[in-house]
């Protein structure tokens, strides 16, 4: 495990309570604007005024149907997925004390992939891919966690390594199954790049409830997460029930991730990059970091989804491609910037 003992670059000075409230409002506003933008833009652009009218008077005319039944479920789903993945990423980074941790790191992605492939192989075309992926992701994390139990001090390292080993194994089985049934390759491939299409309110409600459960689990753990950043021994000595907290964090992150996979397949980069960016802005304190990370992840994915839906020459593009295109270079820029800042201060 790359335990980075190098302190992170000096983040902005901690904001006062007043500054923090302003920041909250700003992110909530950004979230709302991204949502409106997503509803306005689509295969045909609906004027903002019509969107607002349709929002206030649901059920009147074709615009209201498009807004309420097609665009809103999709954009809300994007918000939930983005928020859930970013929050799960922040939790995993605290749990494993590893800045490279993302929501999929302990095997969720390969487990979800195997679930989807298995469903498509056994019962092709039955729309069981998403629920199978949900359970595949949970199963894989559960397996990794079971292997790491009772390992005392090396539990988190074992979790990480077991997750890696399971990922490799599950990916190999997925590949084998996909090659054995060539016709399902393109459906699986599109799913693996991640995308939010054909959302219904039922899907959003089911996934949203699971995510809500994951988020509620985090509330009483947020200060324990700060202690875990100082190392397991320090956390233990200030009274954090370390093993239980780690279990709760893992459960919460897995629920958030699996529910996100259920909606949108494997969408990369949100869970890795967003927590890092927000940590630089508001600091590492989880009571501040987690809510803003959720809002920022939601905003980011709504924007990415809107871009994905509106690139005319390419048709429908998986949103995962957009997040990687937007997130990747920005993250590299941050890293390069961090290096420069350090040299300047030394």
């Amino acid at each position: 495990m790359t335990n980075v003992n190098q302190p992170a670059p000096a983040a902005a000075e901690p904001p006062s309570r007043h500054g923090h409230a302003t920041r909250w409002l700003a992110w909530a506003l950004a979230c709302l604007l991204a949502l409106l933008l997503g509803v306005v833009h689509g295969s045909t652009t609906i004027p903002l005024w019509s969107v607002l009218t349709a929002l206030i008077h649901p059920g009147r005319g074709i615009v209201a149907v498009i807004v309420w039944q097609i665009r809103l479920p999709r954009i809300v789903a994007a918000a939930l997925v983005g928020g859930a993945l970013a929050t799960a990423g922040a939790s995993m980074q605290a749990l494993l004390q590893n800045p490279l941790a993302d929501p999929y790191i302990v095997g969720a992605s390969a487990g979800a992939g195997l679930g989807a492939v298995a469903a498509e192989t056994v019962l092709p075309g039955t729309m069981l891919m998403a629920p199978a992926a949900f359970f595949g992701a949970l199963f894989s994390v559960f397996l990794a966690w079971t292997l790491s139990r009772g390992r005392g001090r090396s539990a988190m390292l074992t979790l990480l390594l077991a997750g890696y080993a399971l990922s490799v194994m599950f990916s190999a089985i997925s590949t084998f199954l996909m090659l054995a049934r060539e016709q399902s390759l393109s459906a699986i491939f599109a799913w693996e790049m991640g995308g939010i299409h054909g959302m219904t309110w039922t899907t959003v409600e089911v996934a949203g409830s699971i995510m809500l459960a994951g988020l509620i689990l985090l509330v009483p753990e947020r200060r324990h997460m700060n202690a875990l950043l100082m190392g397991e021994d320090v956390a233990l000595s200030v009274g954090v029930p370390v093993r239980r907290s780690q279990g709760i964090l893992l459960l919460s992150a897995s629920l958030l991730t699996a529910a996100a996979v259920y909606i949108g397949g494997l969408i990369g980069f949100v869970g890795l990059v967003v927590p890092h960016v927000i940590r630089r802005v508001v600091g590492a304190e989880h009571e501040r970091l987690l809510p803003i990370t959720f809002l920022a992840g939601a905003t980011f994915l709504m924007l990415a989804d809107t871009v994905a839906e509106n690139l005319p020459p390419l048709g429908l593009l998986p949103v995962g491609v957009i997040t990687a295109f937007l997130g990747g270079p920005y993250f590299l820029y941050l890293l390069a910037d961090r290096g420069r800042g350090k040299r300047a201060t030394n």
Partner: peptide
């Protein structure tokens, strides 16, 4: 102590 992320 290690502090991979920076607390106040």
């Amino acid at each position: 102590v290690g502090h991979p992320y920076d607390l106040t």
